[in-house]
Write a protein that binds this DNA or RNA. Sequence first.
DNA 1: TTTATGATTGTTTAA
DNA 2: TTAAACAATCATAAA
Length: 166
Amino acid sequence: MKATRSRAAARKDNKEAVKPVEDRIIGKRKAAIRADKSNKKRAKNVTSTKKDPNKPKRPPTAFFVFLEEFRIIYKQEHPKVKAVSAVGKAGGEKWKSMSDAEKAPYEAKAAKRKSEYEKLMEAYNKKQESSDDEEEVESETSKSQVNDKDDEESEEDEEEEDEDDD
DNA sequence: TTTATGATTGTTTAA
DNA sequence: TTAAACAATCATAAA
């Protein structure tokens, strides 16, 4: 019921309602987002901008980076839990419980991701410039995934920075 | 089969 | 500056 038209209505509603930001509005937002997102996955964009042929996705925030690990741990302790919301709630709670020092490593990682994101953005911008008239033929249907199995990204620059002095 | 949804917080972005 | 949108996950439900 909330889906479909809700996605548009929700967005508008929120705007008109102008409700507090930290009131955990969620729920509706994501619902709308999800709908749009899925749509964009197959189509193009959702709103704003014009069209992103291959716009880089936003880098995970420190919280998300932490969540990635937390999810694994959570699953280990709760192998029966299959709800994504469960991990989200638990992760969020823990995240708030963590200190800045604990989040530091996660933030560092997120920062790094962001760095790459900026780089991708540059390329993306360039592409837009190039695509000016050139209709980017999206042959994703054809290409899809060739699966070259070249996935070797063992470039793990490990930077162990244990800064616990405090 | 495929897409949407749910829940978390942080970052990003557009106006 | 502000408010909204979006980032991942994954099993399940609905169309």
